[in-house]
Design a protein around this nucleic acid. Structure first.
Lengths: 211, 211
DNA sequence: TGACATATACCGACTGTATGGTATGTATAG
DNA sequence: CTATACATACCATACAGTCGGTATATGTCA
């Protein structure tokens, strides 16, 4: 990704390249260990460009969380797990989709805002809240399907769609931690199998043999 | 916690005080944001003491993970959730216990090694592996009970005791992340309710009304 | 149309301080 | 007399952030 020259000025690219660099580097090293110089080098911009676009390193953290929220919501909105006509099938397809994208390099599939929230929740409330909005904004996209599936299948139970949606996220985030601690993505996929089984249990449907 | 004087030399205390400081500060600020000076100040020792006991900041990270493994394994071994004669009841008591200790300040109940593993998994393999040993060492303590409960209740199912033990940890770790992101411990307890429900489903027992 | 002003987006050298780490000294135990 | 467990002063570097400058786009008024 070449620097914009003075002749062909696609200027304004610095901000996006810095956010992309932040997304990749922070997932690998964490927020505190990521330096402004790291980001500038990877994005091929100077410090002047950094502090022109972001008032501080913390401000970049907030912007990175918002950038993550925007790009991932687009990514999930476009995914095919929304296709099934049955709401429960959409939920199970979502879990299967989350499992399917867990592969390859850890920093490539783990969650930026989960990582950042874990690290800065006490020292940087602004970043923490931006991460919170990203996470809980995503869980909210599941609620309607859970609610619909519950109606369709006549499920009672002393749980809410909201809490199940959040629990889904908790399992995913926790799965990432085990994968990192054990340095093995399979540890994450394993937990998603349990989540799949739990949801099928809740809705009284049989387990999927082809796993 | 006073400094050991030359008159009443409880010397050797520096190492433990540094490990306790690491446990508390790293849980609040993360590993990278925790400085050696922070630790020395809180432990009331000098830098000389720090680098006498630990060869580097990374070495302290490894030692902190091992210290965590030791102290928590003692803590859990002594807990009363082991009391019930029935293995399944012990498992459910474990989940209830984990839920019960989620209260008050976030840094007081969250997991040091989960936090560290998340942050340094790529940049410091030594710390990562020490965290992994702590986490998976703990999950291993659940396996015997899960295996026994499975026999006692005649449960088949295409899952292993090992994977369920790990999933339990994943839920707990993920619950901590949601609690941090939402700045509310109730978000963590909520996921443990789902975990409780999942385990009861797996073993075909009724839900607990008194929750 | 052209001259001029203003704003945007970026560059790159510089700075004060914080940080991990070192070197040397000292009191005490055995 | 030696090893341990510190204390203290010091160092090189890395870090977030600053500041003065430049190239380009855009607006505006004669």
């Amino acid at each position: 990704m070449p620097r914009p020259t003075k002749q062909s000025p696609e200027r304004g690219g610095a901000r996006i390249r810095l956010l992309e660099a932040a997304r990749d580097i922070i997932r690998a090293k964490g927020f505190a260990a990521t330096t402004v110089d790291d980001l500038c080098k990877t994005a091929a911009v100077t410090k002047g460009a950094f502090f022109h676009n972001f008032g501080s390193k913390d401000a970049l953290g907030v912007a990175a969380a918002e950038f993550w929220a925007e790009t991932t919501s687009g990514f999930f909105a476009a995914a095919s797990y929304h296709d099934p006509a049955d709401a429960l099938e959409r939920i199970l397809a979502y879990v299967a989709f989350r499992k399917a994208i867990i592969a390859g390099d850890l920093a490539a599939f783990t969650c930026l805002v989960g990582t950042m929230a874990q690290e800065v929740y006490a020292s940087s409330p602004d970043i923490r809240d931006a991460c919170g909005r990203s996470i809980f904004g995503h869980t909210a996209t599941l609620e309607a399907d859970i609610e619909a599936a519950r109606r369709d299948h006549g499920i009672a139970g002393d749980w809410t769609a909201e809490s199940l949606a959040r629990h889904t996220q908790a399992v995913i985030q926790g799965a990432f931690i085990l994968a990192k601690a054990g340095n093995d993505p399979a540890l994450a996929r394993e937990s998603l199998d349990h989540l799949d089984r739990y949801i099928r249990h809740l809705f009284h449907v049989a387990e999927d043999d082809a796993k």
